[in-house]
Design a protein around this nucleic acid. Structure first.
Lengths: 301, 301
DNA sequence: GCTATCCATATATTTCAGATATGAACATCG
DNA sequence: CGATGTTCATATCTGAAATATATGGATAGC
């Protein structure tokens, strides 16, 4: 015979109540099937678990030992279902979040992760920073579970949800004439070399910047290429040119670079949540929901 | 739904084989019921355990966690049955043995216990020494599981099995005329005070000694009463009289007492195994069997 | 495009846990 | 001392649920 949790529950109940009849009542069943099942179990194990008498039933020595183990097993089953419901509710599990360049400077994302960490102490949330193409590759390779990227996502097929459009600022070196103005028109820096990241790291943002310049009536002269989006700021500070960067980069106090709002219609840096196309794990779903809440709550970030 | 070992086996097998079809084969069942059961389990837990594809099935993160726990539970069930069969075979468990006075001097009993200890390393065997009435009381009170007694057993109802008849020796003080003889007839000590234990500690043995004296043609003059059977030897050594004692007592080298075989039909000290009337636990059965073997092997002991 | 393989669905079958009814043994109480 | 109520055991029946059988749909590899 195959021992079953049922048998374990039965012998535990009998030991607890000291009688087949009372145990049966507690188990919401009748006494005969209980006797029958215990009898079958005893036969299968080849030993008597209880000494029956008119006063009830007491475990034999072997019975006591096995009742003890039955209790442990039942407790572990309970733990199994508890963990399962925790996982189902997204209160448990692990989530690896990938962040595109400069995204971690946006208060929004760390805030969302912090909120989730507090709400779900059993969840393990890890972060890593990279660029959009690498993040998308990591998604398909299952190295991460979700990425905040700058669309479009290259290669593979993902579920993409636009989070919000981040405003941009013009970064100019101190001493530059535009640094004196409260707001700068793009034309005012048409002659300066434009320092940008490699287009592959965010073609959408890259093209939006170029389009804005075209709209302003000039074709920008591309200067030194910044290896990442954030790397443009030190280059500007070094006097190699100007740059258009996500607004959150003004947190980088490079000393030597100042940030100014752009007059008119400035380009915008889109941020999106990318996941694998498969149905999301509960914890992932919660994370995305939290992100949306944060966006709604803060407007931008 | 109630989670069952069946479900745990199923998900463990699927994780191991990486496919429903192969797992079903390994489980000696068909694929549809396996799919159905896992589906039901997933529904009950409210989460997906496996990602199905044409290449097979791989656990989700939650699935992997739960598969791990399922393996532990299954392993503990195995341990449960292992312990149960160990208990059933009497290879496991505890046995409390009570020994009547002087019985521990008989090589037979320690030898049996030693043999059992070596053969059954998982068994816990403890011993204690007392007198027959106390041992019988301990049996009914379930303080011990088996006793080697000097019948008859007072009070209560027990399963008694005679082990063997131990020969007796005459104990006389050095310097006593009988000490010079190789064999002593009981008549030769008819005038000496006979030192004996209280009759209640072994009425059968006590009466056998008196009967032997009557047979030899005299009624013994009872001297100082020894509190236990073994205590007679020092009293004899102190010159307070003679005694008739189980042969094994010659191991007590009191200095001052010598032991001599009794001519003719000497009284005999019966030893018996007493247990509670209920069917014996496996380990107890083994112990009694070992005792019988020892008796057969050694003749006396 | 054909075939093999994978999982899902639908239906039939069988097994087995549980309910009901009853019996036997014994303690308690009037 | 017998009546009554407790205990657990036995026998038979019912019903739910696990499994088998048959089939379908989707896809990867040849």
């Amino acid at each position: 015979m195959n021992i079953d949790f049922r048998h374990l529950r039965y012998i535990a109940a009998i030991a607890e109540h000291g009688s087949f009849t009372h145990a049966a009542r507690a188990l919401h069943m009748e006494q005969p099937p209980l006797s029958q099942q215990v009898r079958a179990l005893e036969q299968a194990l080849g030993l008597k678990l209880f000494v029956r008498s008119r006063q009830g039933a007491v475990p034999t020595e072997a019975g006591a030992e096995l009742v003890k183990r039955a209790g442990i097993l039942l407790q572990m089953r309970q733990e199994f279902t508890d963990v399962a419901t925790g996982l189902a509710r997204g209160e448990r599990g692990s989530l690896r979040v990938g962040l595109a360049g400069a995204v971690s400077l946006l208060p929004l994302i760390p805030a969302a992760i912090r909120q989730l960490r507090l709400a779900l102490p059993h969840a393990v949330i890890t972060m890593e920073e990279s660029n959009t193409p690498a993040l998308c590759a990591a998604l398909t390779e299952r190295t991460i579970d979700v990425a905040i990227i700058r669309p479009p996502a290259p290669g593979g097929t993902f579920a993409i949800e636009t989070l919000f459009e981040e405003p941009t600022l013009l970064a100019v070196p101190v001493g530059h004439p535009a640094a004196g103005q409260a707001t700068v028109a793009l034309q005012d820096v048409a002659q300066d070399p434009l320092i940008l990241f490699p287009r592959a790291l965010g073609p959408g943002f890259f093209d939006a910047i170029l389009a804005a310049c075209q709209n302003a009536g000039f074709t920008p002269q591309l200067g030194q290429e910044a290896p990442q989006i954030t790397a443009a700021v030190p280059l500007v500070a070094a006097g190699l040119g100007v740059s258009i960067v996500p607004a959150c980069l003004d947190q980088i106090h490079a000393g030597g670079a100042v940030f100014r709002p752009i007059a008119g219609t400035a380009p915008r840096a889109t941020l999106a949540v990318a996941t694998r196309p498969e149905p999301p794990a509960p914890l992932l779903r919660r994370f995305v929901e939290t992100l949306r809440e944060q966006v709604r709550g803060r407007g931008a970030g």
